[in-house]
Amino acid sequence: MKIKTAIADDNTFLITAIKEKLSFFDNIDLKFTALNGAELLAKLNDNYNIDIILMDIEMPVLNGIETTELVKQKYPHIKIIMLTVFDNDENIFNAIKAGQMVIY
């Protein structure tokens, strides 16, 4: 069974790098990417059959923490892993409060 995955990040270079790394795993099926939380939510409206989202904390329009709260309300079955390169204790704490794992 393949793990249905989505990526939400405003950095297109990072999206490309993650897609490249995930391509090495036969059991991961990348369904779509989004450049911000609002775009992710719109795409989830069309396809919410996702197992896991790799989500950036800092994004324009709707950040990762706000998006996580909305995703968890509407699609509680989806797991979210937060990604960040920033060492911001408040963002990390808020991500943990939202019930997510934070990866540096």
Score class of each variant (00 low, 15 high):
62 L>N: 10
6 A>K: 00
26 D>Q: 10
45 N>P: 01
4 K>Q: 08
25 F>C: 10
99 G>H: 10
58 E>N: 12
25 F>H: 15
83 L>R: 03
74 K>R: 15
96 I>N: 09
75 Y>C: 03
19 K>Y: 08
4 K>R: 15
92 I>T: 06
78 I>F: 02
102 V>G: 07
35 L>E: 14
39 E>D: 14
21 K>S: 15
15 I>S: 03
16 T>D: 14
57 I>T: 02
54 L>K: 04
13 F>N: 11
86 F>K: 14
81 I>D: 00
99 G>V: 07
4 K>V: 04
11 N>C: 05
77 H>L: 08
19 K>P: 01
51 D>F: 02
95 A>R: 00
74 K>V: 13
103 I>S: 03
51 D>P: 07
79 K>D: 09
62 L>M: 13
92 I>S: 02
65 I>E: 01
5 T>K: 02
18 I>C: 06
18 I>Y: 04
46 D>S: 13
60 P>M: 12
60 P>A: 09
97 K>M: 15
46 D>G: 09
75 Y>N: 05
58 E>L: 14
68 T>F: 07
29 D>F: 13
8 A>H: 01
70 L>P: 02
22 L>P: 08
17 A>N: 14
54 L>F: 08
20 E>Q: 15
88 N>L: 04
51 D>R: 07
62 L>A: 08
104 Y>D: 06
22 L>I: 14
84 T>W: 00
27 N>M: 08
51 D>K: 12
77 H>I: 05
18 I>Q: 07
25 F>S: 14
75 Y>E: 03
